[in-house]
Design a protein around this nucleic acid. Sequence first.
DNA 1: TTCCCGCGACCTCTTGCCTAG
DNA 2: ACTAGGCAAGAGGTCGCGGGA
Lengths: 320, 320
Amino acid sequence: MKKTTIKDVAKKAGVSYVTVSKVFNNRGAISEKTAEKIKKIGAELNYTPDRAARALVSGKSETIAVVSPEFASAFTQLLFEGLQESSLKSGKEMNFFATGATGEGLEHIIESIYAEKKAGAVIVISQCPEEAQIKKLKEAGIRVVLIEGKSENAVCISSDNIKGGYEAGMRLLSGKCRRPGIIVGDVKYISSQSERLAGFLKALKEKGVLKNGYETFEIRKHNFQDGKNAFNSFVEKGVDCVFSAAGDVPAYGFLFEARKQRVSGIRIIGFDDAVMSEGMGLTTVKQYVKEMGMAAFDAAAGKENTNLSFVTKLITRETA
Amino acid sequence: MKKTTIKDVAKKAGVSYVTVSKVFNNRGAISEKTAEKIKKIGAELNYTPDRAARALVSGKSETIAVVSPEFASAFTQLLFEGLQESSLKSGKEMNFFATGATGEGLEHIIESIYAEKKAGAVIVISQCPEEAQIKKLKEAGIRVVLIEGKSENAVCISSDNIKGGYEAGMRLLSGKCRRPGIIVGDVKYISSQSERLAGFLKALKEKGVLKNGYETFEIRKHNFQDGKNAFNSFVEKGVDCVFSAAGDVPAYGFLFEARKQRVSGIRIIGFDDAVMSEGMGLTTVKQYVKEMGMAAFDAAAGKENTNLSFVTKLITRETA
DNA sequence: TTCCCGCGACCTCTTGCCTAG
DNA sequence: ACTAGGCAAGAGGTCGCGGGA
């Protein structure tokens, strides 16, 4: 059973295969009647254009490359869901490339996507390629979408991290809060981290608490253990309210350690509203990550091309 | 800057491009000398064969399709890491397809992979396609690898779930255990679940506890909330030791709820050794998931073609 | 003229067969 | 009669034009 090709359709429709091609690409002038007929026959014969052939002749791939430092975090999980959902709908495929935690592989991977025409669009997560490289892709007709990154030449999709951090700060300070602490990732390279921090500090300042100082616990892996470490560090320093700008998972670790050590009274707010946060009772700044994923996909697919800043929403639960 | 093609290499080497093709495919009779020269020039020019053209002419794709009900679980996360690692090394790419939780999409997705030649190999996670479909793929030269599934016509990779369940049971029964409970997923359709249950029951039987009966809490989503529900159900029934065959995440929920309600003394063992288990202090049956991912990739890439059953290892921590 | 449609060239690479030594 | 290497025919499409009605 061979695959049905454009020629099979053409033969059955009694036209040249060129005409069929045009119909399936909405190109050239084809009469309504012929087009209908061809479409119908195409459906009957279950015809789908051959991706390889298409890519070959057009010099472009339709697949979307997703580049991320890792695919195992709560954030990428959720993003993934959104991407998947859109991908399923559109029929376009995705390829995933991990750059490694440090991101040294980013440039190299993007270069190979470019050189080997592996994709017609690239979605970069939590990282920012060099401007020159982005430009090069753009000129080659490869769309670039940045999630949590900034660039002039790409569609940028991110949460309103400043506002999120601000809201977390305001919430924390609306209750008892003598000494605030913040758990934060790499503020130098990850823009979301510096933005959340900035938002948080803005709240502190507004409330007049900034002058009293605050504690910072900087982490790299954004994992459970880091959160536990943060707890031990903070408890020693008398921190009584904390904002985990680094995400929910460190907050889980923090909470867990607190409950284990039977320390209560420290209030904490996370960031993400990851899957376990509800169960944990964690107050957190919800990001609409899944929606971001869907938007990113649409942008990559060319349906959308404006920068998007997603709102965040403070979800208050038990911990703050 | 156009991509360097086989012709560029040929021109520079002063041979026909056919010769170059043959060299890069180790086919036909080419003298050692010419081959060397061509390879050298190919490297100089940074030549990589065009995937699309190759796929077109050979009728086969080199990419590996990964099909899973979802990509957001602890298990798939870890698996993903392994797949990524191998993929990075081999240079082969992967495409991911979500079938949805119920798996109704599985047949359809595999069919489309087959019909549209989207991949040269398929890795199916936690599901089992119809035997006939597997055969069809096999006959078309598409390798099929099943993770946690069984088939005559595919390479099967799984954990030794029976042994894992057994060890968990033995451990639990080696301490105080008046009434055992098991949290389990869909035993009908997910072979790992029925196997773990079987192993666990074997232990109960051996210890002569089976006749006293045991509690079961069946869940579908394998999430945190399910674990909390399990706790509430079990605590009512006087269960004092539980095995979460459904994975670590429900065990997290269970544990969390227990600590929250200040109930201690219920011992629990999970399955997976997911990322947060160490932090949680959860005793669990470790699966070498990442290694399974790597093995699955190698099998899909054609490097390996024997069924593999991975050992499990009981990691004892605080909870049991 | 205008509207539809098809010719022919081309995209990059593989492969069976052929030819020049 | 071998051996090293080339010719030509596709694989399944796209697209600019040319041309018939």
